[in-house]
Amino acid sequence: MHFAVPIFPGSNCDRDTIHAIEDVLDQPVTAVWHQDSDLKKFDAIIIPGGFSYGDYLRTGALAAQSPIMEGIREAADQGKLVLGICNGFQILLETGLLPGAMRRNDHLQFRCSISRLSVENTQTPFTLGFSQGEQIRIPIAHIEGNYYCDEETLQELQQKGQIIFRYAGENPNGSIDYIAGICNERRNVLGMMPHPERAIFDWMGSTDGVKLFTSMLQYWKENNGAA
């Protein structure tokens, strides 16, 4: 399974994400500069966290205009897996691949901590290794993670099982319905504020991110018959 990790000016979790793919999955991964739009040879794309374009204008807004987004859109259309983490989630919202928008955290401060999440839907390529309602611990680090959408969209997300992760206990940013991560209707595009790449070894304080990566690989193997 060949992963692409797009790099925008200001991305800063790109190396962590690449390392996680190598360490957890031992699969090939390539850093792709944002000006390349051809992602045909890749099986999955993980848009890393960071401050693309310094968060100028709005988080993710400028990155959403990069040439590479064409390739990402194409991959999503083909049913390939696209995961956006933190700033990656913000970029997916700005491109319209996922519905809704991000606002500044309700307390207005940056927040970095290990958050407790509940896995709300395991019928997705990203969560098939988790059990329904499983409580996991994954770090967050953002100032704009206050997910928002209108009532109609929220109902749709709820009814179609597109809410994948919710904050369990404290909501660290004020997001609507405690949302921490959502997917598209087809369930091949996931955006999440928490950083699974920061929870893969015991010494990091949690290994709950591992199953997210292994789920992706398992899904891909099942659907591509490759070993």
Binding site: N12, C13, R15, D16, H19, A20, G49, Q109, F110, R111, C112, S113, P139, A141, H195, E197, R198, I200, W203, M204, G205
Partner: peptide, 16 residues
Amino acid sequence: IYQQYDHMVQASTAVC
């Protein structure tokens, strides 16, 4: 203070 700092980026922080 420190929850306003990203103290885990680079995924190398073993003691926070």
